[in-house]
Amino acid sequence: MRIGFFGEVMREHRADGRGYGFGGDTLNTALYLHRLSTQHRLNIEVQYFTLLGQDAASNQLAATLAEEGLALRAGRHPAKTLGQYWIDIDAAGERSFRYQRDDSAVRQYFAAEQTSLKQTPLEQALVNGSLDALYLSGISVAILPEPDRQRLYQAAADFVGRGGWLIYDNNFRPLLWQAEAAARWQQKLLPLCQLALLTDSDERLIWQLPDAGPAATPAALVDAALHAGAYTVLLKCGAAPCWIGTAALRLQVEAQQVRQLVDSSGAGDAFAAGFLGRFLTAPDALVAADLVAAAQAGHQLAAAVVQQHGAIIPRELMPQISLQGA
Results as ranks from 00 to 15, higher is better:
Gln39Leu: 13
Ala30Leu: 05
Ala142Ile: 06
Ala66Gln: 05
Gln114Cys: 12
Thr38Cys: 10
Ala91Tyr: 01
Tyr109Ala: 09
Val46Thr: 14
His40Lys: 12
Asn43Lys: 11
Arg35Thr: 01
Val141Arg: 04
Ala105Cys: 05
Leu51Gly: 09
Tyr20Leu: 12
Ala63Gln: 05
Ala142Cys: 04
Asp25Val: 04
His77Trp: 05
Ala142Tyr: 05
Ala79Arg: 08
Ile44Gly: 01
Asp148Gln: 02
Ile143Ser: 08
Leu126Met: 09
Asn59Leu: 15
Leu134Gln: 00
Gly21Tyr: 00
Phe22Ser: 00
Asn128Val: 09
Thr81Lys: 06
Val141Gln: 00
Ala142His: 03
Leu65Ser: 03
Ala66Phe: 00
Val46Gly: 15
Leu122Phe: 05
Leu72Asp: 06
Asp88Glu: 12
Gln119Ala: 09
Leu144Ile: 09
Phe97Cys: 01
Tyr99Phe: 15
Asp25Gly: 03
Asp132Ser: 07
Asn28Met: 13
Gly83Gln: 10
Phe97His: 02
Val141Trp: 12
Ala155Tyr: 00
Glu123Cys: 02
Asn43His: 11
Gln150Asp: 13
Thr50Cys: 11
Ala66Gly: 11
Ala156Cys: 08
Arg76Phe: 02
Gln60Val: 01
Asp103Asn: 07
Val46Gln: 07
Ser140Asn: 04
Arg149Met: 10
Gly93Glu: 07
Leu136Asn: 01
His34Ala: 01
Val46Met: 08
Ser96Pro: 09
Asp103Phe: 01
Ile44Phe: 00
Gln60Pro: 11
Phe159Trp: 06
Pro78Val: 10
Phe159Ser: 01
Gly138Glu: 06
Ala62Leu: 09
Asp102Glu: 11
Gly93Ser: 07
Leu36Ala: 03
Leu27Gly: 13
Arg76Lys: 04
Gly83Pro: 07
Gln119Glu: 10
Ser58Leu: 14
Asp158Glu: 09
Glu123Asp: 01
Asn59Trp: 11
Asn128Phe: 09
His34Pro: 05
Lys118Glu: 14
Gln47Phe: 12
Leu122Thr: 06
Gln154Arg: 12
Ala92Lys: 09
Asp55Met: 01
Gln154Thr: 14
Pro145Phe: 08
Phe110Thr: 00
Lys80Thr: 13
Thr50Arg: 12
Ala62Tyr: 05
Leu42Glu: 13
